[in-house]
């Protein structure tokens, strides 16, 4: 198969970038999108040009490193897969494919198609965990968890932190990402203990980092490679509201409920 690629090139964070056209030929339909880009890069190296930089690592759809905004969609045209699991058979021979980095104020460009997503780490640092130390915890079976709750928590915890939700969102919001972590932990008895503080801290951090707000277009859910539901955003909203209201009476002796 042959393709024309229009790729965003940008030397570094400060440099001015632009779209550059390339053509690749002789690509097998069975090869992955990155193997196609490998062929392009091999071509560029052979010509003495600098290869296109893009983020990738596990190439099996789980590490969340890969990004790419392909033909107007994060992770390309196939639903429920990351770019690394996208295969060229999903494109038409001779097609022109546009490839851009993910765009958000909170995701500055590093080089070419690579963006800095450490903002997502910072949100997690604000409270995306259960505060237990390594040791002194109860036996794993001492607290039964309803299977339905455990399954729902897993569905939320399946987030790979790729940031496709932010890239797809008209407002560059990180609500699905944050909602997924908030729900995952709030659904489990182990995480419930500090659920109130967690959601307030994580949302505050998210806002401070310059992500947009949610306008419920659900583009995030449509583009999430792990199919994480917007019900997690609703749950976060709920958790946030009840926590924010109860925050004023945080002492069990002054509030009552």
């Amino acid at each position: 198969m042959n393709f024309t690629l229009r790729i965003w090139r940008q030397k570094n964070a400060e440099a001015k970038g632009g779209m550059v056209s390339y053509s690749v030929s002789g690509v097998s339909a069975d090869s992955s999108f990155f193997e196609m880009l490998d062929i392009l890069n091999q071509q560029l190296v052979d010509e003495g040009a600098e290869p296109v930089c893009f983020d990738h690592d596990c190439r099996e759809g789980i590490c969340g490193t890969c990004s790419l905004y392909i033909n107007g969609r994060p992770h390309g045209p196939v639903k429920g897969v990351t770019t690394c699991q996208l295969h060229m058979r999903s494109f038409a021979d001779g097609e022109t494919i546009s490839i851009e980095p993910w765009r958000a104020k909170a995701f500055p460009i590093v080089r070419d198609l690579i963006v800095d997503r450490s903002a997502l780490d910072r949100i997690n640092q604000a409270g995306g965990y259960v505060s237990v130390n390594s040791g002194g915890v109860p036996d794993a079976n001492s607290i039964p968890v309803r299977k339905a709750d455990s399954d729902a928590a897993f569905d939320a915890a399946a987030c790979i932190g790729c940031g496709a939700c932010v890239a797809a969102c008209a407002n560059a919001a990180a609500m699905l990402f944050v909602g997924a972590k908030v729900s995952h932990l709030a659904l489990l008895p182990q995480g419930k203990v500090e659920a109130r503080e967690r959601v307030l801290k994580m949302v505050e951090c998210m806002d401070d980092l310059g992500f947009g707000g949610c306008s419920n277009t659900y583009a995030c859910e449509a583009e999430c490679p792990k199919g994480i539901s917007v019900a997690n955003i609703a749950m976060m909203n709920r958790e946030f509201l009840s926590s924010a209201i109860r925050k004023e009476k945080s002492s069990p002796f002054t509030g009552g409920f």
């Binding site: 965003w8 107007g72 851009e100 797809a168 583009a219």
Partner: peptide, 10 residues
């Protein structure tokens, strides 16, 4: 973005 978003939304 250069290419306008074509995600499936309502």
């Amino acid at each position: 973005y250069q290419e306008s978003n074509s995600s499936e939304t309502s």
